[in-house]
Amino acid sequence: MITFVNPNFAKELERFGEDTASECFNCGTCAAICPLIYEHFPRRMIRYIQLGAKDRILENAQELWRCLHCGLCTQTCPREADPGEVILSLKRFVVDTWRRS
């Protein structure tokens, strides 16, 4: 499936919170430790931010609310990329997009 890439997406996301997604090197620790044990969550979402795949995030937005905000991913991230807060920022971004639509 073709997805448009928005190179300014990470910048756009800054006003919703943590700006640490670029620190992630996709090791997958967060996905391994996450209690959801579900389709590479939250790693996949963070990869989408890095790629600027804004549409993919909006298409899969519901997944974000499976996050328990328990913070285990942030506690164990070797890059201190704060995946838990990045997911929370994405929730804020999606809520804002819904409300504007």
């Binding site: 209690p35 499976r66 328990l68 905000h69 328990c70 285990l72 506690q75 164990t76």
Partner: peptide, 10 residues
Amino acid sequence: LFTHCCGGPA
């Protein structure tokens, strides 16, 4: 520090 969520928030 490594406690596990009870699932309540979902």
